[in-house]
Amino acid sequence: MFLAGETVRVKDQWPEATGPVHIRTPWYVRGLEGEVVRCLGEFSNPEDLAFARPAEKRPLYHVRFLKGAIWSEAKPDDELLIEIFGHWLEPVGQERP
């Protein structure tokens, strides 16, 4: 579990490359650091639901990213708020997979 205010990194993983998948983590935040705003609850893992497989409940977080860290367009302190499942997040400081 991650706590509100914690800095996390979105895993820099690309399962799309290896076969049919259904991913709810947008490409543009992968590998980037953000801040956990809050946990939104637990939801069945869409990556399994999409293939009618048994789906475990997974925590879903609202994570904030500074826009300037992603794109160079004007106003770098504007922000993005994105729902990301816990299994796509890692604590910052841990080695990348």
């Binding site: 799309e16 490359a17 991913i23 947008p26 490409w27 543009y28 992968r30 992603i70 794109w71």
Partner: peptide, 14 residues
């Protein structure tokens, strides 16, 4: 270069 790895429906900022 990340943009080239995205799935085609993953349209944010493309």
């Amino acid at each position: 270069d990340k943009e080239t790895k995205r799935a085609h429906h993953d349209l944010g900022g493309v």
